[in-house]
């Protein structure tokens, strides 16, 4: 049975201000959902909230992964349960070696999944170097990345495109059940977009559910969504099939605005 992420009537405050005002969504393994919406509508807020960022305060609603309450878990436990967020703006951490970090992350996530408990195995064993190297190299070549890339510090001094590729590299290694890709397509040139999309497609299949946040039709030519949702002023106001993308492309968000009103200030 495939995994399932359920978001029900989710309300989220950021610094005392309500940003999400009752979001409903359901993403299953094997499905691709595109989430679109104007700047400031709350897409990244949803992404961060699902990943467990402590700054985002859930005031109502629930988020379940296979029936388990994600909201009670820290970010690390969610990751070990199979949630992955590709950041819109990945954080650079100077001094932290990319390869070390990847090996540690993979080890923690795998260990949790093999004992099926999501328990923290702090300072536990690392997966054997040989095995890690092999996986790493195949993921690197899938994403057409140089192998000395992982000798660098984490996201430090990476170009915009390199950061986005590095996010997908992490996704490939961590093999999540549900991945949230927050504008992974922005800042990628044509070639990079194709490589990254092919990477996502190769991973998706039946084992991955994708919530793809984007502003552009472009990526949807490569990654075919099963569903498209429009987030507006903190709510999913329209959901539909792939055809919705071309409607948006044609009419922009104006028709959403007239239909659902201007965002209410404050």
């Amino acid at each position: 049975m495939g995994s399932e992420l359920v978001v029900r009537d989710l309300h989220v405050n950021v610094e005392g201000k309500e940003i999400l005002k009752g979001v409903n969504l359901q993403v299953r393994q094997g499905e691709v959902h595109a989430l679109m919406g104007p700047n400031g509508s709350g897409k990244s807020t949803l992404a961060y909230t699902l990943a467990g960022h402590p700054k985002y305060e859930v005031t109502d609603g629930e988020v379940l992964l296979d029936g388990e309450n994600l909201l009670e878990m820290g970010a690390d436990e969610r990751a070990r349960k199979g949630i992955f967020l590709a950041f819109q703006y990945p954080t650079a951490i100077p001094g932290v070696n990319m390869a070390n970090f990847l090996r540690t992350a993979v080890s923690r996530v795998r260990a949790a999944q093999s004992d099926n408990a999501g328990s923290a195995r702090d300072g536990g064993e690392l997966i054997p170097m040989r095995e890690f190297r092999k996986e790493l190299n195949s993921s690197l070549s899938m994403l057409k990345m140089e192998s000395d890339f992982v000798r660098r510090y984490l996201n430090d001094g990476f170009s915009g495109g390199e950061k986005k590729r590095a996010e997908i590299l992490q996704m490939a290694l961590l093999r999540p059940k549900i991945a949230i890709l927050d504008e992974t397509d922005s800042g990628l040139d044509i070639d990079a977009l194709r490589v990254v999309s092919e990477g996502v497609n190769a991973l998706s299949g039946t084992n991955l559910g994708v919530l793809l946040i984007t502003h552009y039709q472009r990526i949807l030519n490569y990654i075919k969504p099963n569903f498209i949702h429009i987030l507006f002023n903190g709510r999913v106001v329209v959901s539909g099939g792939p055809e919705l993308a071309s409607v948006l492309e044609e009419k922009g968000y104006d028709w959403v605005r007239t239909e659902f009103g201007e965002p209410v200030a404050g």
Binding site: G52, D76, T91, I93, V96, N97, F101, R108, Q170
Partner: peptide, 27 residues
């Protein structure tokens, strides 16, 4: 906090994330 969150969002327990950050600080 953003460094910590990034590492934890990859499955590292807080303590281990902090250790990586301290290690990185001295690198």
């Amino acid at each position: 906090e953003e460094h910590l969150f990034y590492l934890m969002s990859r499955g590292l327990p807080r303590h281990e994330a902090e250790r990586l950050i301290v290690d990185g600080f001295f690198d």
